[in-house]
């Protein structure tokens, strides 16, 4: 018997499982984003030190996360740490670790680039009115950095949310994986299940990422000068 297959979304069990999967995704994304923002800002300011070795080290760290796919990093920590050091890390922990390392590197680079893009005379005129180095940053440089960095930082956040779909490969159950499980279970009696489930997941991702990017647009408009 064929029907539209929509009833796959009416099952409370299915919805509950999808939401649990979504919870897993969001938890990893939220923790990693929080860690990345805090460490990324520190990292970005540290990178402006005149010490070339420090800068080179950061550069290598950043490029390593850009060149090597995130999936490889996940495997490296998930399987590598177990085989080489005998440390059996949880998939959840590995995911947060890799996403935080990646986010910190990208965030650090954003902060560094943005602070350097603030004209030298902004620093100088702040110094010229007798502000201390910390006050110069606190009242003049950081507020302008925040405004300039908001669009690209939010872009990074949405990229991180989307990339969390890779965590299934280290055994974490996210919303996409739950979706696939439900689709496969219904394969024979409901071939349209994949359409509805993926449509639903699409909607969920949209509902998460769209407000974030709307928010960034609003900030951009409000803070433009």
């Amino acid at each position: 018997m064929r029907n539209s297959g929509f009833d796959v979304l009416l099952s409370l069990n299915n919805l509950r499982r999808l939401m649990l999967g979504l919870g897993g995704t969001l938890e990893i994304a939220a923790v990693s984003v929080a860690v990345s923002v805090i460490l990324g800002v520190l990292c970005g300011f540290a990178m402006m030190s005149k010490n070339r070795a420090v800068y080179a080290l950061f550069r290598v760290y950043l490029e390593a996360f850009r060149i090597v796919p995130i999936l490889v990093w996940l495997f490296l920590f998930f399987f590598g740490s177990a085989i080489v050091f005998g440390a059996n890390l949880e998939g959840w922990f590995v995911s947060v670790l890799v996403f935080s390392l990646w986010g910190t590197a990208e965030m650090g680079d954003l902060v560094r680039g943005t602070v350097l893009s603030i004209p030298a005379h902004q620093w100088q005129s702040a110094e010229a009115i007798g502000l201390t180095p910390w006050q110069v940053r606190r009242f003049v440089i950081i507020p302008q950095t925040l405004r300039r960095i908001a669009p690209s930082a939010i872009n990074l956040v949405t990229r991180m949310v989307k990339t969390t779909s890779l965590v299934v490969f280290v055994g974490v159950t996210d919303i996409l994986r739950v979706g696939k499980q439900i689709i496969e279970f219904n394969m024979m009696k409901n071939p349209m299940a994949s359409f509805w489930i993926y449509g639903f997941i699409f909607l969920i991702y949209f509902l998460i990422c769209y407000p974030i990017s709307r928010f960034s647009k609003k900030l951009e408009e409000k803070w433009s000068y």
């Binding site: 004209p119 005379h121 902004q122 100088q124 005129s125 702040a126 010229a128 009115i129 009242f139 003049v140 507020p143 302008q144 405004r147 803070w223 000068y225």
Partner: peptide, 12 residues
């Protein structure tokens, strides 16, 4: 007090 050539007000 110092005033510079470039417009140096804080834009924010």
């Amino acid at each position: 007090g110092m005033v510079f050539q470039s417009y140096d007000l804080f834009p924010h």
